[in-house]
Design a protein around this nucleic acid. Structure first.
Lengths: 211, 211
DNA sequence: ACCGGCTTCCATCTTTCGATAGAGGTCCGG
DNA sequence: CCGGACCTCTATCGAAAGATGGAAGCCGGT
């Protein structure tokens, strides 16, 4: 397309991963890593300077601000760079918020180096780059809409996962215990289980709730 | 100590991480990465050739054989290389088995590059190299022995976390439901909780069971 | 305006869990 | 050899949780 290299910002809290990404991308003549950020805030600030084409962003930044929020902050302005999520995890709970936040692509760290470079180029052109397993998840999600939990259901299930009793959940959300049971009953039907612990296990493996 | 470089084998299923480790270690004149393995079995085979001083091993290898088993296989012979665990997770459920399996050290991937090289040298001398947070965990563990779950208790709790009922757990482990309840009662006491879901939540956050 | 999904609430009945207290067995280390 | 963890099992009782079936208000889209 053009003869100027694609300018990349690496945002990951692991120095080793940054070094790995840099090493992998350094073999590509049309891609240049021009900056790194070890924390999400740094990435947001650095990306705002406007001399970045693509941000490679980890979702998991220590315990602070996560990559999803940082993504939203970065893409929320004119002429903003594209954001490619590069993470170890491929759970629904991570993928969907990231895409909603405006990420252009979603890669897994176990991707082969070639795919990584290809995804950077795809993202630089403004097109979407998804890892195959991520694409699978999205398709499955679209095919089985019944699996999706409502906001309230997700909220209830989250508290269940924290070990609260129905009564405690009711208190927390200002509901009666009976209402909590109603929500749970529907959750069980959707997930195809018949106990709270099984629901947590299934939802966790499906990535419907955060670990 | 000597003028021959320390020969290192990288065992990690992520090409990016391998590249990162290689890049970081390449700046150290006394350390040489002589081989890589993308799967645990490869690492075991490669390490058996006897020309390796230190293995940098990820615990999390896809879904197959895990790093702990590979570690046990590698160190179980004379003149075997030292094994340094390098992983993202610092949960008790990972650390203790790895050390029991014969790992010489346990590092986290967010460690600074200098620490990594230092740990490799330490391991090459046969001394233990632990990341500070890992060392903290071990100390805490030693100070509060009551928190430790027995093998059976961990086993039961693991099945609880998968959503099984007491009866189902009994069937799985060839126990009566009553026995399962006994184990659970002791688990609740140790963890300071009073329900199965709360036990799973606490144990997960403490890293006592796998996610 | 009507329909459907979401949310909230209710009551009853059955099943499962958890608390409690005891007891016999194995196996290891002092 | 003995004490002490660990594992197993028993039994009862009250407390949660789950199944079932219904009902009503709210809101967005047709």
């Amino acid at each position: 397309m053009t003869d100027v290299p694609i300018r990349v910002l690496l945002a990951d809290d692991h120095p080793i991963v940054r070094a790995g990404l840099r090493a992998v991308l350094s073999t590509e003549p049309d891609i240049e890593v021009v900056a790194e950020a070890a924390r999400a805030e740094e990435a947001v600030v650095r990306a705002a300077r406007g001399d970045i084409d693509v941000v490679l962003m980890d979702i998991q930044f220590g315990k602070d601000l996560n990559g999803t929020e940082a993504t939203a902050a970065i893409v929320g302005r004119a002429g903003a760079p594209r954001v490619l999520i590069v993470t170890t995890y491929d759970s629904d709970a991570d993928i969907l918020p990231a895409i909603e936040a405006g990420a252009t692509g979603y890669l897994l760290k176990d991707a082969p180096p070639e795919d990584l470079a290809a995804a950077v180029r795809t993202a630089a052109e403004g097109r979407t780059a998804l890892a195959p397993s991520v694409a699978d998840r999205l398709m499955t999600r679209l095919r089985t809409p019944g699996t999706a939990l409502t906001r309230r259901e997700t909220e209830v299930l989250g508290l269940v996962a924290q070990g609260l009793s129905n009564q405690a959940i009711g208190g927390q959300l200002h509901l009666t215990e009976g209402t909590v049971k109603s929500h749970l009953a529907r959750i069980y039907t959707k997930l195809g289980v018949d106990s709270r612990t099984a629901a947590v296990a299934t939802a966790t493996s499906l990535g419907l709730i955060r670990r």
